[in-house]
Design a protein around this nucleic acid. Structure first.
Length: 337
DNA sequence: CTGGTCAAAGGGAGTC
DNA sequence: GACTCCCTTTGACCAG
């Protein structure tokens, strides 16, 4: 597992990543950057890149439950209206495909056109239009959750009328409006393509789902917040593991240090060998040896995996001090010439 | 009753 | 100034 942890310079992406970790512009934790490899790495990032930006999408994709794409057709409920085929406008534009969410072969609904052709939304408001049938489907079929069906079916009319009159509400009571399963699923599908919406997309979605644009906007805001929260949880979990690993490494190094000190105490004559040079930098506290004897080897092999311990500064047999800066690197033990 | 979830409101900050 | 985003909080709803 390859990993890198950077505290203080989030602007420098890690080289092994397919793409740098995207952090929001107003990230509340500036200077913190974490990159994961192996199990945590989103290896699909390169092949699963979205058309548009999607902050935290990589993390979300790993933690989010798989989205049910078999939203339609709604077989349990008999259709009274012709099935409609929905297009996610920006998807169709960008990819040249239709995101079919309903029966294939049904009439396609071009949300872009409906949004562009007029502000009255005639294309979707007509009772005979495909969009209308889709909207009716949304309200005819509520959540598949059996426990909720009764309540929700009872509340369908209220919900619909509530939405229709929300704009005119005096706002005295904030009625809880829970989006239907289909509405949430469609919004989710849209979110997978675009974590953010431009006004046209927002209007198109609102018309398509018979929601107010503000509702669509709020849903996306809340959805981004949920994604970010999940990513934060993943990051925290990873940091916790990093902390545990470093703690273990620290313990091991402390133990090795004690062993070295014990060895040094038990075999003091090594320090008197003429060829042995043991130096320590007081600033960085690194011990470097300049010796051909075995003591140097003991100092150099302070790690079992060598991952975190810096290599000796000099391995040459020269009598010259291994540290070039004589001001900061003071020789603690001088060779006996 | 309580805690979790989620839609929504409100406010601050950034951008154009 | 309008718009959008993010963050926090609120309130309704639901399950245990």
């Amino acid at each position: 597992m390859e990993l890198a942890l950077s505290l203080g310079d989030a602007s420098k992406p890690f080289s092994f990543l397919d793409k740098p970790a995207k952090m929001p512009n107003k990230d509340p934790h500036p200077g913190f950057c974490i990159a994961l490899g192996g199990a945590f790495a989103t290896g699909k990032a390169s092949e699963d890149k979205r058309v548009n930006r999607g902050p935290d999408e990589t993390g979300a994709s790993s933690s989010d439950p798989p989205l049910q794409l078999d939203l339609l057709p709604f077989t349990p409920v008999p259709r009274t209206n012709p099935p409609s085929r929905l297009r996610i406008p920006w998807l169709s534009d960008a990819l040249g495909i239709e995101r079919v969410l309903s029966d294939p072969g049904a009439r396609a609904l071009d949300v872009n056109r409906s949004a562009d052709d007029g502000d009255d939304g005639a294309a979707v408001s007509s009772p005979n239009s495909a969009a209308s049938s889709f909207q009716m489907d949304f309200y005819a079929r509520n959540n598949g959750n059996a426990a909720r069906n009764k309540r929700e079916n009872e509340g369908d009319a209220e919900r619909t009328s509530s939405r229709a009159s929300d704009d005119d509400d005096n706002g005295s009571t904030r009625k809880k409006l829970r989006l239907s399963k289909e509405q949430s699923a469609f919004l989710e599908e849209s979110f997978k393509e675009h974590a953010t919406l431009n006004p046209k997309q927002k209007l198109a979605l609102a018309k398509q789902l018979n929601l107010r644009p503000r509702q669509v906007e709020v849903w996306f805001q809340n959805r981004r917040a949920r994604t970010k929260l999940k990513q934060t949880e993943v990051d925290c979990e990873y940091l916790k593991r990093c902390c545990d690993t470093l703690t273990e490494e620290n313990k091991r190094l402390q133990k090795e240090l004690q062993e070295l000190r014990a060895l040094k105490a038990s075999q003091p004559f090594y320090m008197q060998l003429p060829a042995t040079t043991l130096t320590m930098c007081p600033s960085c506290e690194r011990v470097a040896t300049n010796s051909s004897s075995g003591t140097a080897g003991a100092a150099n092999q302070t790690t079992t995996n060598g991952s975190l311990i810096p290599p000796p500064l000099s391995l040459s047999n020269s009598r010259a001090p291994p540290f070039t800066n004589a001001q900061t690197h003071t020789q603690q033990a001088k060779p006996h010439d």
